[in-house]
Design a protein around this nucleic acid. Structure first.
Lengths: 399, 399
DNA sequence: GTGAAAGCGCTAACAA
DNA sequence: TTGTTAGCGCTTTCAC
């Protein structure tokens, strides 16, 4: 509306303005400002001064259109309100800023459709690269496509076997196994695991896997071999297959990996029945507190519980309290993720701490390295977890 | 490197491509695609089909350069890891996406310099508008500038008296007063407040304000009048002053407003000494648990505590436990912010719940309304808080 | 070392 | 309704 007046005040200064002020050509001004090619020191200084005087700020849009680079990263995660992702996001934004990048954020709530939409929008905005905590480890066609189109992708938290992208994860299996070992070392034999996994996965496990989170009545006995099969089946899957809907188990999911670790530890301790105390619910559908309540109502209830994340730990603690159980005297509790409250409240929780910020920062660095052209083989970084022993593990009650 | 080959496969389709394929001019194609001007149904359909066939996706960068609109919002907050901001951010991203916008995220850690830098970067990226939880309510020159330059700004969580922008906040004073009233109603007279405020503020309060968080020894007695002065002094400050370093108290800060509410409630109950049990620490410098420990070591310790946010509540709870105090039997506790753990753990905390997501969503809607041209007077929206009474308030212990 | 000119992909006047 | 013509602000050959 007031754009027609050619008076200086409002319109932001452009390269032609600076060039005019400095008495050089646009090209020289551009070279001096963007710092490339060759410019005489004298000219460079005049341009600098002119730019300063006019308060020149480069139009990143125009620049991006030419260079094809926006210095913007896309972060696609499940839910920023989950402390784990909040920490990861913090790591991402900080590392990005340190490297001169900004980040566009998208939440998916573990919904593959939302993830696809987010990736599309982000691409349309021409992000230089994508950091994705994939909602599914098999439904990854959109990621494969975007990656193939030349947009670097780094997977965070969960790996997808079919994708030849970099990934940054932790050793979920090992961390879970270690946590269970601690419980075993304290003398526990009836150790439970309460976890939530993606909706889609929960459809897969009923047949022949024995992972079901239903029924409190001790359901199926041992399931040793079927689980062994599951491992084998995915371990030798074609490494470049993009979508493998036939995979019997979605082994890339952190929840499932933690379950594997749980079983490994149990079996190594001679406990072959790894199904009785396993409660694997579905996101948005099951309440961890209910799952735990079922566990505690068992004729022979568990004496220790491993929660696969902090929200679940809250449910476990709540159910224990409701049943009048004290932690750790009556029930030992260990959880993944070291939250503020786990650290501060009593009993202080013994936890498997994930390096949340580092996870994000590492992903950013890997991504930027790709953006800047590195073309080596996909790199799978596994960051170490730390078991922090506090006050929530005790020997099992006499009974 | 491989860009020279003119073969179809790689290069994304552009408007000329679509136009050619559809047998129309670029303008017609553009009009059909962007859905403006007039295009015959026939042409529109041909263009649509051609676009579909070629997998055309508009280059938002080019479009933005022309239209001056990026459909991107900037969110500048303190710390995404704080549950309050995580919730707010969730509200922002969801509301933005629903309206067709994306959001660029920046953390400031309450550091004005970081905030200035963030705002600058965001501007360079041509965000259509900014949502800012200002680190300072007085050091707002950069916000005034960006706003004056035509970039809509909406303040979130804290208002800045000098800025004529929209804002979305809660009634901190009222909410705190209400919370203290609950404590009073339960019979408490020795009610403490533990809070943390920005570094800069803490330099201001020592002289003549009596708010100091130092010393456990009951320090200065009542401070009735000096506080009254503080109110008056800010209440009549020039509403359009951008930076007022001489303001005796930074009344826009949520922490300070909550303190005001605390005092109001106390005085209304005939308690004139509102300083003895007030502990106002500085971000990054004081530990809430230490502050609380000092309080509890007083000859006449408080029987109830109001924490100004969830992280502080954790410190309060921790200190109480360290001293062997039970909540609520020995010490009643109320906090701002309804977190997962406050809801789930025992004793379940009575809290002042802020509508975190709505705060973010409302800010987005206000911002988009401005972006779309509304020019009415600055609008200050105050969202209602909800006091959720759970199990952390009991009558004061006998003596 | 510097300038002229071309063009990124798109929209917006203006004619026709 | 449609096409033609200009650019947006910047980078980038390519001569000079």
């Amino acid at each position: 509306m007031t754009t027609n007046r050619r008076s200086r005040p409002s319109r932001p200064a452009t390269i032609p303005d600076v060039a005019r002020e400095a008495g050089v050509s646009r090209s020289t001004a551009s070279r001096a400002l963007a710092d490339y090619g060759s410019v005489s020191p004298a000219a460079r200084e005049r341009v600098r001064a002119a730019a300063e005087k006019l308060g020149y700020r480069a139009n990143q849009l125009a620049r991006s259109m030419i260079t094809g680079r926006t210095h913007t990263l896309g972060a696609v995660i499940a839910d920023i309100q989950n402390p784990f992702f909040a920490g990861v996001t913090r790591g991402i934004t900080d590392a990005a800023r340190a490297a001169g990048y900004q980040v566009l954020l998208a939440n998916t709530d573990e919904d593959p459709a939302a993830e696809r939409a987010a990736v599309k929008m982000l691409r349309d905005k021409h992000v230089d690269g994508l950091i994705v905590a994939p909602a599914s480890t098999t439904d990854t066609g959109h990621l494969a496509a975007v990656h193939a189109a030349g947009c670097p992708v780094v997977l965070l938290d969960r790996d997808a076997p079919g994708l030849r992208t970099d990934s940054v994860t932790i050793d979920n299996r090992g961390a879970a196994r270690d946590a269970v070992r601690r419980l075993l070392a304290a003398g526990h034999r009836r150790i439970a695991l309460v976890g939530l996994v993606g909706d889609e996965d929960s459809d897969l496990d009923a047949p022949g896997d024995g992972l079901g989170g239903n029924g409190n009545s001790g359901s199926g006995g041992d399931d040793t071999d079927s689980t062994g099969d599951a491992h084998g089946a995915t371990a030798d899957g074609a490494p470049t297959a993009t979508t493998a809907p036939t995979a019997p188990i979605d082994r890339g999911s952190t929840g499932l990996e933690r379950i594997e670790g749980y079983r490994l530890a149990l079996r190594a301790a001679g406990i072959e029945d790894t199904g009785t105390y396993l409660r694997k619910g579905a996101f948005h559908r099951q309440d961890p507190a209910d799952l735990t309540a079922g566990l505690l109502a068992l004729p022979e209830p568990p004496t220790a519980v491993l929660a696969t994340d902090s929200l679940i730990a809250l449910g476990v603690l709540s159910a224990a309290r409701d049943r009048g159980l004290r932690v750790p005297e009556d029930l030992s509790v260990v959880t993944f993720d070291d939250t503020d409250w786990a650290r501060a409240l009593r009993p202080r929780l013994s936890v498997v701490a994930q390096p949340v910020q580092e996870l994000g920062a590492t992903a950013v660095r890997a991504l930027i390295s790709r953006i800047e052209g590195s073309t080596h083989e996909p790199e799978h970084t596994t960051l170490p977890t730390e078991f922090i022993d506090r006050e929530s593990i005790a020997p099992p009650p006499p009974a």
